[in-house]
Each structure stands twice: as structure tokens, then as C-alpha cells.
Design a binder for these strands. Structure first.
Length: 462
RNA sequence: UCCCGGGUAGCUCAGCUGGCAGAGCGGAUGGCUGUUAACCAUCUUGUCGGGGGUUCGAAUCCCUCCCCGGGAGCCA
């Protein structure tokens, strides 16, 4: 007989049927006449209540059924007379597949701190919290593809290993097959990377954007969804060294189209999670209080406030609040400024657009005022920046001049400049940090708790 | 990387004006009950983060290193 998932049982219409269920024991309550077991199989937030009557042969095996043990159970589904669950399985047979020594099994019936669970990363998906996080993460990942596929964006696979070191974002991890104990010497004490695997220095990608641009400039609308790597020494609840990024890129599009896409995207994802992860969100609402179905519902409809950088600076200048960092046109907005805009002034997501060109990347399109670029950031309450995007500079002369001003060497960028030489066209895109989205929607305080195997400075266990 | 706050039993934490290392939870055993993080009784648990120093004596004071958390910077 095939096993059935608890998720399907909860969905209903199986009362009276003989079923086989496999899973891990969460808790057990024993008495003389009857025992109760809460069983989880990861398919859903809910546990299945197993009822083991003392006359059942399974009753003698209860000793091995401690918290954490894996079992295969046969029984008849009944309507539950008790509170807290609709169904329960009246057990006729239990096969203990794997015991879990209660003296050493680290998960208790009680709740654990998120910090402790990080130390047992291989077992934490068995908890309510992490089961919920990873189910929401899965629904979000599926929704990302649905959103773009429904709009005829093509999923493109940009490289993980790259030779491009001028993508603008932080420090890079070097990828090498050289013997690190005997590095070939180059000039003035450096390493000779011409002897390395690729014949030149290679890195883990920090972004697929530049590659996505050339794919957009032939396929039209594309998106990437894959890992990115940053070697920055960032120790915060919002940064990972390895994270997943979504980067749509649209040909024949401007910054207005870009903002529209970003807003539609967030709306879509929130509505999908609200519809498909009701129990998970209800769980987060109850135990972490940083998210709610109601808030998700609002987020999936409410239009985002749009404000120019220049007006945002004016708004901050009017603020009664004392800021630690100065507010002045030309300086980048600090976390406290962004938070003031999202949490106090507009009380919701805000898109800030048209930033000073001197604080933004070389590829962003210069506006007619000659001092701002068509760049936009989507800011969310509490989490801060979740999306950074721009219209790309499609004019060859303007781009070349900008690269010179910012001292970016042209030689490795000829292919990028070619896109402006041959059939150039307006195009725009953005990058969204997937974990920050999961973090925002689940309300998890630390980004290390929304990815199965977090990588950060000094952290690469599991 | 910088600024704060921490590291004591398997977990959460108290003890910190230097003087016998504690509680709750968990776990084990027994009892009881269609139970819901069940309940009652008994029992169980230590490299006080590592190293060095001050002292008759250090979990407690000093130095140093490691790790964790919060905030900042960098960014998504």
C-alpha cells in the first residue's frame, strides 16, 4: 500500500479508509488505556494525531516511539472527538524505521531559540518554524517562475563562474584550481593567473545582470533566478555570502516599466503566499508577530508610493526626527532614512527613483538633468531595500564617457559595449534578493533562518 | 570591519559587592488521565567558551583570543 501525505489527509474525504502514513514523531502522550502521538511528515504545517489503543499490537512498540523517531504507521482515519484537530488515525500497526535516542536527540517537545537551532542546521527543518519557512520559500520560488512565465519572460541561466570583476557590487570570491601552497609568481609579488584553469582570474558571480542584458537584447524579456556570491565581511541579519537573486531584464523598456514590473511582482508574490500558505502565515503571525495574512493581503493590492530621490531628501529635511547621519542632496540614503520613509511617513512600501548619478553604478541611464540617473530602489518597512534596479545606459558615447569618469577599464567590457554598437535599444531591469523577500513575508528576524544552509563570514557548517 | 550586549546542566536562564555551582524545562522510573508544549511524585545533569594573570581562594576582578546576538557600514 502506498503511503499518503498528511497534507492530503488534512484535505479531507478519507474518513473510514485504511491508510499508511510515514513521518517523524513530534510528541507522545501515554496512558494505560491509550496513547497519542503527534506525527509530522513535512508536507504541511499540521501534525497528524495517532491514537494507539492499548489493545492494539502497536501499543507494545511505543517505547521506541520517542520524539524524533521515524515510523511507518497503518491505521484507519477517524473524525477526532478531541479539540485541536479534525482527524486522527486509529493505529493498528507501527513500524519503527529509525529510533531517536531521547537522551541525545537535541529537539525537545518544547520550543527552541533560533540561535540554538542554527547549531543543528541538519535537524531544524523538523521544527514547526523551519518547516513553515521552507514551505513558504518553495511556494515563493514557484510563484517567481509563474509570474514571469505568465508574462512570457524567458528564464535564462547566467554563469556562476565569471571573469567579470566590474559588476559594481562588493568583494568577490576567487575561483581557482591552482595549488594554494605553491602559487605561480607573477610580476611584483602577485599571482600569475594565466597559469590558472581559465587562463585568467575567475570569480563567483555577484550578479547575472550584465549577461542578462545581452540575453534581453536578443530574446526580449528574460529573468535569472539563481545564486549570487558576495565576499563582503557583512555581519548582519540581512546579509548572506551566498544568496539567491532574481533579475528580470526587459528590452524596449524604461524606468517606468521597471517600477511597474517590480510592483506587480511583489503584489503577485504576496497574493500567492496569502492564498497557498494560510496555515504557515497564521503560524508566523502567532509566534513571531512580524507578519500576518491581513498585512499580506494589503501588500498584494496597495499601490506603492513613488517618490523621487530629490523629493525624498526634502521630505527627510522636514522631519522632526533627529537623524544620526546628515540628509543632504548627493549623499546616499542611510538605513535610518529609508526606515523613516517606509515606517513613519508612508507606512508601506516606497519606490525611490532618480538618484544622484555619483552614488550609483556606471551602467545606469543618465537623466536629461545631467546629475541623476534612472535608478530605483524598492524599500519595504523593517527589511529596507529589497529591490535595486535601473534603466540601463543604451547610448554608447554616454556609457563610454561614464566608464572613463569612473575609471572602469574598457578592455574586458567590449562585449558589453558591443550591445550599444549593434542594435542598441532602451532596456531596464532590477535585482531582488530572494531571501530578503522570504524574510519579509515570513517575518523571520534573521536572514540566516530563511535558507537551509546559510553562508556568512565564519559560517559554513552544514 | 566598527560600537554595544552576551557565552554557567541537553535547552532557557539565575548566581557576578571574590568564599560549598542553582532553578525551570527536558530525559529516566512509577502513578494517573481521550490526551493537546498533559498532569503528580521521585531520580538524573557541569571543561561556569579557550588561554593567561591577580588572590589563601575566581563562574565572579584584569588581559587576550574564539564564538553568538543587537545596531552600523557595504548591499540584495
Amino acid at each position: 500500500m502506498d503511503r499518503i501525505r498528511i497534507k492530503q489527509i488534512i484535505a479531507g474525504a478519507r474518513i473510514g479508509q485504511l491508510l499508511v502514513v510515514c513521518g517523524w514523531i513530534r510528541s507522545k502522550r501515554e496512558s494505560k488505556g491509550v496513547a497519542f502521538i503527534a506525527l509530522s511528515d513535512g508536507s504541511t504545517q499540521d501534525t497528524l494525531q495517532l491514537v494507539v489503543p492499548s489493545e492494539s499490537a502497536a501499543f507494545n512498540q511505543l517505547h521506541a516511539c520517542s520524539t524524533g523517531a521515524a515510523v511507518r504507521v497503518t491505521g484507519t482515519l477517524r473524525e477526532s472527538p478531541g479539540k485541536g484537530q479534525k482527524y486522527e488515525l486509529e493505529v493498528s500497526g507501527i513500524e519503527v524505521l529509525g529510533t531517536a535516542d531521547p537522551e541525545t536527540y537535541p529537539l525537545q517537545k518544547k520550543g527552541h531559540s533560533l540561535e540554538f537551532l542554527r547549531d543543528i542546521g541538519h535537524l531544524r527543518p523538523r521544527t514547526n518554524t523551519f518547516g513553515a519557512v521552507f514551505r513558504v520559500r518553495n511556494v515563493l520560488a514557484g510563484a517567481v517562475h509563474n509570474f514571469f512565465q505568465e508574462r512570457d519572460f524567458m528564464w535564462v541561466h547566467t554563469p556562476v563562474i565569471t571573469s567579470s570583476d566590474c559588476e559594481g557590487a562588493g568583494d568577490l570570491f576567487t575561483v581557482t584550481s591552482l595549488d594554494l601552497d605553491r602559487l605561480p609568481a607573477g610580476s611584483n609579488g602577485s599571482t600569475d593567473f594565466s597559469r590558472d584553469f581559465f587562463g585568467k582570474r575567475a570569480y563567483l558571480t555577484v550578479s547575472g545582470q550584465l549577461e542578462a542584458e545581452f540575453l534581453a537584447m536578443s530574446l526580449g524579456d528574460v529573468y535569472t533566478f539563481g545564486p549570487a556570491f558576495r565576499a563582503e565581511n557583512s555581519n548582519t541579519s540581512r546579509h548572506l555570502s551566498e544568496f539567491w537573486m532574481i533579475e528580470p531584464e526587459m528590452a524596449f523598456a524604461d524606468i517606468i516599466d521597471d517600477m511597474k514590473l517590480a510592483e506587480d511582482f511583489i503584489h503577485y508574490l504576496c497574493s500567492k503566499v496569502a492564498a497557498e500558505c494560510e496555515t504557515e502565515i497564521a503560524f508566523f503571525e502567532k509566534f513571531y508577530k512580524n507578519t500576518s495574512l491581513k498585512a499580506l493581503g494589503t501588500l498584494s493590492e496597495k499601490p506603492f508610493v513613488r517618490i523621487s530621490y530629490t523629493d525624498a531628501v526634502k521630505e527627510l529635511g522636514r522631519a522632526k526626527k533627529k537623524f544620526e547621519y546628515p540628509v543632504e542632496w548627493g549623499l546616499d540614503l542611510q538605513s535610518e532614512h529609508e526606515r523613516y520613509l517606509t515606517d513613519t511617513v508612508f507606512r508601506g512600501p516606497v519606490i525611490v527613483v532618480d538618484y544622484p548619478r555619483d552614488i550609483k553604478a556606471f551602467y545606469m541611464r543618465q537623466n536629461p538633468d545631467n546629475r541623476t540617473v534612472a535608478a530605483m530602489d524598492v524599500l519595504l518597512p523593517k527589511v529596507g531595500e529589497i529591490i535595486g534596479g535601473s534603466q540601463r545606459e543604451e547610448r554608447l558615447d554616454v556609457l563610454e564617457q561614464r566608464m572613463e569618469e569612473m575609471e572602469i577599464p574598457h578592455e574586458h567590457m567590449q562585449w558589453y559595449l558591443d550591445l550599444r554598437r549593434y542594435g542598441s535599444a532602451p532596456h531596464a531591469g532590477f535585482g531582488l534578493g530572494f531571501e530578503r523577500l522570504v524574510q519579509y513575508i515570513t517575518g523571520m528576524p534573521n536572514i540566516r533562518d530563511v535558507i537551509p544552509c546559510p553562508r556568512a563570514p565564519q559560517l559554513i557548517r552544514f
